Amino acid sequence: SQTQRTQDENEARRIAEEWKRRGYDVEVRNRNGHWEVTWD
């Protein structure tokens, strides 16, 4: 799996939607004030 971090929730949601469209299983988490998008 791969993880991308961002400070911006909207960006995190956009990234998550992009990977979901490509057929990946995606998880979005808030950790210590930043957002992590993990896909595999």
Rank of each mutant, 00 (worst) to 15 (best):
E36W: 09
R31H: 13
N32K: 05
H34P: 01
W39C: 00
W35E: 00
W39I: 14
T3N: 05
R21T: 09
E36M: 06
N32W: 06
Q2T: 13
V26K: 01
R13P: 01
R13V: 08
E27R: 10
Q4A: 12
E11H: 07
W35V: 01
N32I: 04
T3V: 12
T6I: 10
H34N: 09
V26H: 01
W39A: 06
N10K: 12
A12M: 03
N32Y: 08
E11W: 05
W35Y: 05
W39Y: 08
R22M: 11
E36T: 07
V28Y: 04
N32V: 04
G23V: 00
E18Y: 15
E9I: 07
W39P: 03
D40K: 15
I15Y: 05
E27G: 05
R29I: 14
E11K: 04
E27P: 01
N32D: 14
E18W: 13
W39F: 08
G33K: 03
E18C: 10
W19L: 15
E18N: 07
W35F: 05
E27S: 12
E27I: 14
D40R: 15
T3E: 04
A12V: 03
R5S: 10
W35I: 02
H34W: 15
E11Y: 05
G23M: 01
I15V: 08
G33E: 05
A16N: 01
N32P: 03
Q4E: 09
N32Q: 08
D25W: 14
R22Y: 06
K20N: 07
E18S: 07
I15R: 03
D8P: 02
G33D: 08
V28G: 00
I15Q: 04
K20S: 10
N30G: 05
E17N: 09
Q4V: 15
W39R: 10
E11T: 08
E9Q: 06
R29M: 09
W19K: 08
R21K: 14
W19R: 04
R29L: 12
T6F: 15
E11N: 04
R29D: 05
R13W: 13
N10S: 13
W35M: 01
T3H: 07
V28Q: 01
R31G: 06
R14F: 06
R29P: 01
N30Q: 14
R14M: 10
D8N: 10
Q7R: 12
R14S: 09
T38N: 06
N10L: 12
R5D: 05
W19I: 07
D40M: 15
W39E: 02
N30S: 09
G33T: 07
S1R: 08
A16I: 03
R29A: 10
A12L: 02
R14P: 00
R5E: 08
T38H: 10
I15T: 04
